[in-house]
Design a protein around this nucleic acid. Structure first.
Lengths: 209, 209
DNA sequence: CAACGTTACTACAGAGATGTAGGAATTTCC
DNA sequence: GGAAATTCCTACATCTCTGTAGTAACGTTG
C-alpha cells in the first residue's frame, strides 16, 4: 500500500496533462487555504483529486513548479480584478473615490476569497516565499501608482518620497484588514457597508499625512 | 555521516537541559526569523547550536513542544511590553494619546524585532498555527480593551458592538504596517517620527468611524 | 583518585515525501 | 475489430526528518 490507497477506487478519467492542469491547481488551492501552503504536497494534491502522484508529476515538474503556477494564476486573477477596481474609482471628491475604491476592492475579495486567502494569509515555505512576495509586491506597486497622484493633488503631502513607502504599507495593510473582516464575519458586513467605512476612515487618515 | 557532521567539531559543553534550554530557543528564533518556522527542525536547531539532536530532545519533548515554548516566550515578552506601552499612553487629548501609544509601541518593536518578526510575519505550519493565532489573539484582546473606551468617550461611535471588531482589526493591521515600515527601512524613520505620523493618521481615521 | 551521576555522541528504525521506470488500462484512429 | 498512442497505476529507490537505545566522555564527590 505504498501509493494510491488500495481501496476499490475507480481508475481516473483519461484527461491528459493539458486538461488536468487546472484541476490540479484547484486542488492545490483548496489544500493551501484549508491547511496552509506547507500541506500542498504532490501526494496530498493527488489524493484530493482521486489520482496517483505520477499523474500530478505529468502536469508539473515538481512541487515548487506547482506552487509557483498556483501563485501565478491566483495572483494574476487578483491583480487584474483589483486594478480594475481601483480604476473604477475616479473623481474629484477624495472621500467618494476612496469609498468606491474600497467597495470595489472588497467585491473582488468576496468574489475570489480563496485567491485572497492564499496570497495574504498563507504560510509560504522558504522555497517559494519569494514568489508570494513578488505577487504582493506587484499589487503594492499598483497601489503606489494609484496613491501617489492622490496624495499630491488632494492633500499636498510634503516630503512625499519619504512618506510614500510608509503610506503604501498602511494602505496595503488596511486592505488586508478589510479583507479579513469581510471574510471572518461574512454575515455582519456587506462589501458596500464595509467599503464605505474604510473609505471614510483611510481617506481621513491620509488627509493628515 | 548520519548525524553530527563528522568534522573535527569539539564536544559541546556540559550544560544540561536547564541551562541549555534558553540557548535552544534562541537558536530556534534565529532560524525561524531567517528561514521561516517550517525550517525550525530539531536537526537545524542542533546544528545551529553545534550540538547533536538528542541534546535538543533532552530539552524539549518534540518539535511541536519546542515551537510552542518559543511562541510562548516571545509572545509573553512582546505582550508585556506592548501592554506597558499602551498603558503609558493616557490623557485627554486623543491625538496625543495615539501618538504616544504608537511611539511606545514602535519602541517595543525596535527593542525585540525578532520576536515581532516571529509572531507577525512568520509562516506557521498547521501543526502549531493555533499557538500563533492565540498569541496574536491575546494582543488583539488587549488592544480591544484599550480601544473600546476611547471610541465611546472621545468620538461617541455609534453601533459599537458592530464596528468594534472591524476597528480592532484595522488597529492591529496598522500596528503591523508600522512595525514593517520600521524594520524594513530602519534608516529612514525613527520610532518617534513614525509613531507621530501613525498616531495622527489613525486617530483621525477613528474619529470618523 | 576512584566511583558515580550527568551529559553528549553514535547508530538505528520508522514515517513520509520526492521523483522515476516499467507495465496495464483506456481511447483513438484506421 | 485491431494496432498505436495516450494516459494512468504499481513499485521502487532515495532523501529528510523524527524519535530512541545504547555507549563514551565528562565532572563531581567522597
Amino acid at each position: 500500500m505504498t501509493d494510491a490507497v488500495r481501496t476499490g477506487r475507480v481508475r481516473a478519467a483519461h484527461l491528459g496533462p493539458e486538461r488536468r492542469r487546472p484541476e490540479v491547481l484547484d486542488a492545490a488551492l483548496a489544500i493551501a487555504v484549508k491547511s496552509g501552503v506547507g500541506a500542498v504536497t504532490i501526494g496530498a494534491v493527488a489524493q484530493h483529486l482521486g489520482v496517483t502522484r505520477p499523474v500530478v508529476y505529468s502536469c508539473f515538474r515538481d512541487r515548487v513548479a506547482l506552487i509557483e503556477a498556483l501563485v501565478e494564476r491566483e495572483g494574476e486573477r487578483l491583480l487584474a480584478s483589483a486594478l480594475a477596481a481601483l480604476h473604477s474609482a475616479r473623481g474629484d471628491d477624495p472621500e467618494a473615490v476612496f469609498v468606491r475604491g474600497y467597495q470595489a476592492f472588497l467585491d473582488v475579495v468576496a468574489d475570489w476569497p480563496d485567491a485572497w486567502r492564499l496570497l495574504f494569509s498563507a504560510a509560504p515555505d522558504p522555497a517559494v516565499a519569494d514568489k508570494f512576495q513578488r505577487a504582493r509586491r506587484e499589487m503594492a506597486e499598483s497601489a503606489t501608482q494609484w496613491l501617489r497622484p492622490a496624495l499630491t493633488a488632494w492633500w499636498g503631502v510634503t516630503d512625499l518620497d519619504h512618506k510614500l513607502p510608509v503610506l503604501v504599507e498602511l494602505f496595503m495593510s488596511s486592505c488586508e484588514a478589510a479583507g479579513r473582516s469581510l471574510l471572518d464575519q461574512p454575515d455582519d458586513w456587506t462589501t458596500q457597508e464595509l467599503g464605505e467605512l474604510y473609505g471614510r476612515m483611510i481617506c481621513r487618515a491620509f488627509s493628515v499625512a
